[in-house]
């Protein structure tokens, strides 16, 4: 297995199949917490942490618990429970470790449980069949790389979007378009731009 696999995985997850603009995962926080670029960054950091750790945990659970026992059909319920408990655990942990970090990330953590990008990426890692392609061990590495790529893609897009929205607030927009409608059009144009990256790897 060469480094290209990882490179392709990260570029593909981050740009070509961007979670928000191409796969439509995590649109709620994309619209909800992108009013200021500062909060957007905070959310991205929390998402990145939970997404990567959650991907690893769900991958391990799928291949070491669910698949050997032939009960892969309960994966949805298992994954959401893992993610919910992980978020709870992380919240408690951060609270204990650093008050400052908790202040920065704490408010986003409960929101993350209902962020479909997390569960979506965990499901995608299984559906993409990395384990079948590279073996369970190396598959985990590829899945983790994709999760990092997806989180980076999320951060990139939400940061860019929030910066645009900050400007939009000051712009002279027709009354009916003010707020969410014009933001959606902006997101549509961003998606068009990302469309140009299709098929490069």
């Amino acid at each position: 297995m060469s480094m290209t696999v990882f490179f392709v995985a990260i570029v593909s997850a981050m740009l070509i199949n961007n979670v928000v603009l191409m796969r439509f995962l995590g649109v709620c926080p994309f619209l909800g917490v992108s009013k200021k670029s500062e909060t957007a960054l905070g959310m991205s950091a929390a998402v990145m942490f939970v997404m990567v750790v959650g991907s690893i945990l769900t991958y391990l659970i799928y291949y070491f618990v669910l698949e050997p026992n032939d009960i892969t059909y309960i994966s949805t319920i298992a994954f959401i429970l893992v993610i919910a408990s992980l978020v709870q655990f992380v919240e408690m942990f951060i609270k204990k470790i650093s008050k400052k970090l908790y202040k920065a990330l704490g408010i986003y953590l409960p929101l993350i449980v209902t962020n479909c990008a997390i569960l979506g990426v965990a499901e995608l890692n299984i559906r993409e069949g990395y384990a079948a392609d590279y073996g369970i061990g190396q598959g985990l590495l590829v899945a983790t790389t994709s999760a990092i790529g997806a989180a980076l893609g999320f951060a990139l897009v939400i940061f860019a979007f929030s910066s645009i929205r900050e400007r939009l607030d000051a712009a002279n927009v027709p009354k009916a378009w003010k707020g969410i409608p014009i933001s959606l059009i902006v997101a549509g144009i961003m998606a068009l731009a990302f469309l140009g990256l299709e098929g490069i790897v």
Binding site: S12, E128, G129, D133, V201
Partner: peptide, 11 residues
């Protein structure tokens, strides 16, 4: 003929 190929996008 049914042919299987693995590429950078998967199967």
């Amino acid at each position: 003929f049914r042919i299987d190929h693995e590429n950078a996008h998967g199967e």
